[in-house]
Structure formats: C-alpha cells, structure tokens
C-alpha cells in the first residue's frame, strides 16, 4: 500500500501517522506539502492531526482551502481511500467531504486521554480487521471534537451505517458518561456515503505500538494494507 500524508502548516501528527503507516505497509508514505497542486498516485491519502493554520478562523477551515485540497477532493470522489484524524477530520468536514460540524468540547477544555470506542461496523476498508461491536481503546487529544449533526442527518448516518465509532465505557456501553466531548449520539468517527472516506477524532496511530500502552490502532492500518495492497 502506498500512502500520502498531507502536511499543512501546523500539522503535528504527520510524522506519527507516517510511522504507523510505514510500520504496517513497509512502505514510506509520500509527505505532500499543502502548497502542491497534486497528490502522487497513491492508495491512501491521510490528513494528519495538529493545528493547521493555528486553528485560526475555525479548525480546519483554512486548510480546507489549501491548494492541495482540490486534488484530495477529486481523488476522494474517484474512490481513493482518505483518512482524516483529529484536525484531519475537521479539514474533511470543512471541505464538504463529510457532513456535520465539530464544535468546542462541551467542557470547553482540551482533553487528552485514552477513550473506549465501539466499532459500529466492520464493513469498511478501515475497520475490516475489527468485529462489529468490538470495544477498542484509542487516545483523543482535542479541544474541538464535539461532533454535531442535525436530527435528520444523524438518522441518515445511522440508516446508511456510516457511523464508524462511538465513545463507550469500559463495559462497551454507549453512555452519556462515556462521551468525552458532547458529540451527538457519542459519534467519534463517520464515513462518507461511498465508505472510502473516514474522519475520526481519536488517534489510532497513537496506540499502534505496545510500548506506547496498547496496539488497538494497529488493526486499522493492517486492515488498510490488506484491502489496498
């Protein structure tokens, strides 16, 4: 699997996702500068976490208008796999590739901690190595991860099985107490209709190495390699 990682000014998880992808695929991803107008031919495009453009204006809003994003959108529409993590999720929403919005955390504080996630469906190139309903642990690290979508939108996501992950407690229950940021229906990650674009607030790349405290995230990258090899 050949991947490309888009580097925006202020990206700070670009190296982390590149390490996790290389660990799974054995191939070093292309690091693509946001001012480039095209992305090389690749199987997966990753939009990393960080603070693109310092989160000025609105998280992800300025990055969504970077020169490179025109090609990212075109590729996504043609079916290339696109994974946006944290700030990358915010960029995907601001680009119109995914619906809804990401608001300030309900606590108004930045939160960095491990959270439980329920895998809603293994029917995607990203989650094929997980089981439906499996509880996994990924860290979150964000100040604006409070996913919002209106009632109709939420129903559509649910009907089309486009919710990738929901925040859950230690027993795997999706409860209000397990919701770290106030997201609608505990939503932590969603797909586009074609299921080739995934945006999520938690960081699978931060727990893909046992020395860091766990490797639940590794299955996502292994699954991608399997699907896109």
């Amino acid at each position: 699997m050949q991947a490309a990682v888009i580097v925006f000014p202020g990206s700070n998880c670009d190296r982390d996702i590149a390490v996790a992808l290389e660990r799974a695929s054995g191939q070093r991803p292309h690091m693509v500068w946001h001012k480039d107008s095209t992305v090389p031919e690749v199987d997966l495009i990753a939009l990393p976490g960080g603070f693109s453009y310092g989160d000025y204006l609105r998280c992800g809003a300025i990055a969504a208008h970077s020169p490179v994003m025109r090609d990212v959108k075109a590729r996504a529409q043609k079916g290339t796999a696109v994974l946006g993590i944290c700030n990358g999720f915010q960029v995907l929403i601001e680009s119109g590739l995914l619906p809804g919005g990401l608001l300030r955390n309900e606590s108004l504080k930045y939160i960095c901690k491990d959270v439980g996630l329920e895998v809603e469906t293994h029917d995607s190139i990203f989650t094929r190595r997980y089981r439906n309903g499996q509880r996994v642990v990924f860290p979150i690290a964000h100040g604006d991860g409070n996913y919002f979508i209106d009632e109709d939108g939420r129903r559509r996501l649910e009907d089309e099985e486009r919710i990738a992950f929901r925040y859950c407690d230690a027993m795997g229950q999706v409860t209000p107490e397990a919701n770290p940021n106030g997201s609608v229906a505990n939503i932590a990650g969603i797909y586009n209709r074609e299921r080739n674009v995934l945006g999520m607030m938690p960081h699978p790349e931060r727990l893909a190495d046992p020395l860091l405290g766990g490797r639940d995230g590794a299955a996502m990258f292994d699954g991608l390699v399997e699907a896109l090899a």
Binding site: G49, Y110, A141, E205, D209, L212
Partner: peptide
Amino acid sequence: WEQYDHMVGAD
C-alpha cells in the same frame, strides 16, 4: 495533565 497533549510524537 489531561489538558496537555502528552502523547503527540507517538514516543
């Protein structure tokens, strides 16, 4: 410390 990103860098 939950308000500090203590994991970025994945090291």
